[in-house]
C-alpha cells in the first residue's frame, strides 16, 4: 500500500515539470517581453537602464538557461519576485490562496451534497414527477454559465431581497471575535459557493442517478431485498455505497475546473482570491505571477487527484487487487 502511495505521489513531479515547460514555452512565444511592459509602466526610456534591467533579470541569457534556472528555482519553492506587489510571488499567491481554497471546498461540498441527494431521490423515484423535476433542474443548471448564474442570484438575493452582501469577503468594521468573523465570511461565501456549486451539483446529479439505476439492476440488490431488508436499508447500505464510485472519479477530474471556475466567479463577487490576482497579472504581463499561479494551481489539482485515487483505493477493493 505504501509503495503504491509513494509511486502515485512520485508521478506528480514529471507532471509539474511538464506544466513549467509548457508555460515557459507559452511565454517565450508571446510578443513583447515583460521588460517592455515594465519600462512602459514606470516610464523608463534610458537604453542603458533597460540594458541593466535585462541583465539584472537574467533575460540576456539563452532561453534554455532561463528555463533551467526557472525549474531549479521552482523546485526550491522560489517563484520569483513580483515587481507590481513588491513581494515574492510565493507570498503574493499564498495571500490569495486561503480564499480560493475556502471557495473551492465550499462549492464542492454544496455540489456533492445537493448532487448526490438529488441523484439518489431521482433514482429511487425514477420516472415520477420528482425524477422529472430533478432532471429538468439538472439540465438547467448544467447549461447556465456559472458567472451568469452568480449575477442572477446576486440580483435576487442581494439587490432585490437584500439578504446577502453583494461581494467581498468580509464587511468592514465587523469584529465580534472568531465566530463573528466566521459568520460574516459565510454570509459572503454563500452566493459564490452556490453559483459555482450548482453547476457541478447538476453534473453529479446526472451521474449519481445513472449510477444508482445501474447498481439497482445487480443481483446482490435482489438478494438484499430477498433476505427482507427494508427499502431504505437496501438503498443506503447496498446501492448508495456502490453507486458513489463514479461520483468520486468525476470529483477528481473536476477539481481543476472547480479551481478555474472560481476564477470567473470571484470576479463577479469580488472574492479576493487567486482569480483577481491572475487577471491582474495576465493584463499586466506579470509573468512570474502568471507562471506561479499556473504551477501552484496545477500542483493543487495533481495532489487532489492523487488523493482521489487513494480514496478510490479504499472504496473499491477490486482496484487494490490489481
Amino acid at each position: 500500500m505504501r509503495r503504491i502511495l509513494l509511486r502515485r505521489f512520485a508521478q506528480i513531479i514529471p507532471l509539474i515539470l511538464g506544466v513549467i515547460v509548457l508555460n515557459f514555452a507559452l511565454i517565450q512565444m508571446s510578443p513583447g517581453s515583460f521588460l517592455d511592459v515594465m519600462t512602459a509602466e514606470q516610464q523608463v526610456s534610458d537604453p542603458a537602464m533597460i540594458e541593466r534591467m535585462r541583465v539584472l533579470y537574467g533575460m540576456d541569457k539563452p532561453v534554455i538557461i532561463q528555463l533551467l534556472k526557472y525549474i531549479w528555482s521552482v523546485l526550491t519553492l522560489d517563484f520569483g519576485y513580483s515587481y507590481r506587489q513588491n513581494e515574492t510571488v510565493l507570498a503574493v499567491i499564498m495571500q490569495a490562496l486561503p480564499a480560493t481554497v475556502i471557495l473551492m471546498l465550499a462549492s464542492i461540498a454544496i455540489a456533492l451534497l445537493v448532487g448526490v441527494l438529488a441523484g439518489v431521490v431521482a433514482a429511487v423515484k425514477v420516472n415520477t414527477l420528482w425524477d422529472n423535476l430533478i432532471s429538468v433542474g439538472a439540465v438547467f443548471f448544467f447549461a447556465a454559465p456559472t458567472f451568469w448564474l452568480g449575477i442572477m442570484l446576486m440580483i435576487v438575493f442581494s439587490v432585490r431581497l437584500g439578504w446577502l452582501p453583494v461581494g467581498g469577503m468580509r464587511d468592514i468594521g465587523v469584529d465580534h471575535g472568531v465566530i463573528g468573523i466566521a459568520l460574516d465570511v459565510m454570509r459572503h461565501l454563500a452566493l459564490p459557493a452556490l453559483s459555482l456549486g450548482l453547476f457541478y451539483a447538476a453534473m453529479y446529479t446526472r451521474v449519481m442517478r445513472a449510477s444508482m439505476l445501474e447498481v439497482f439492476r445487480h443481483d446482490f440488490v435482489r438478494t438484499a431485498r430477498a433476505k427482507g431488508l427494508s427499502g431504505a436499508q437496501v438503498v443506503v447500505r447496498h446501492v448508495f455505497r456502490n453507486a458513489l464510485l463514479p461520483v468520486v472519479t468525476l470529483l477528481g477530474l473536476q477539481l481543476g475546473t472547480v479551481l478555474g471556475g472560481s476564477v470567473v466567479i470571484e470576479t463577479v463577487f469580488s472574492w479576493p482570491d487567486i482569480g483577481s490576482l491572475m487577471l491582474d497579472s495576465v493584463m499586466s504581463r506579470n509573468y512570474p505571477v502568471v507562471l506561479g499561479v499556473l504551477v501552484l494551481s496545477s500542483l493543487i489539482v495533481a495532489v487532489a487527484n492523487a488523493l482521489v485515487d487513494i480514496a478510490y483505493f479504499r472504496l473499491d477493493p477490486r482496484i487494490r487487487a490489481r
Binding site: 507532471l15 511538464g18 506544466v19 509548457l22 508555460n23 507559452l26 511565454i27 512565444m29 508571446s30 477530474l253 481543476g256 475546473t257 479551481l259 478555474g260 471556475g261 476564477v263 470567473v264 491572475m278 487577471l279 495576465v282 493584463m283 504581463r285 502568471v290 499561479v293 499556473l294 494551481s297 496545477s298 489539482v301 495533481a302 487527484n305
Partner: peptide, 17 residues
Amino acid sequence: LFQTVPNIIFILTVVAV
C-alpha cells in the same frame, strides 16, 4: 498534463500571451 492544468486559467494565459 493538459488535464491537470486548470482549464480557464490556461485559456486566460494563452489569450493573454
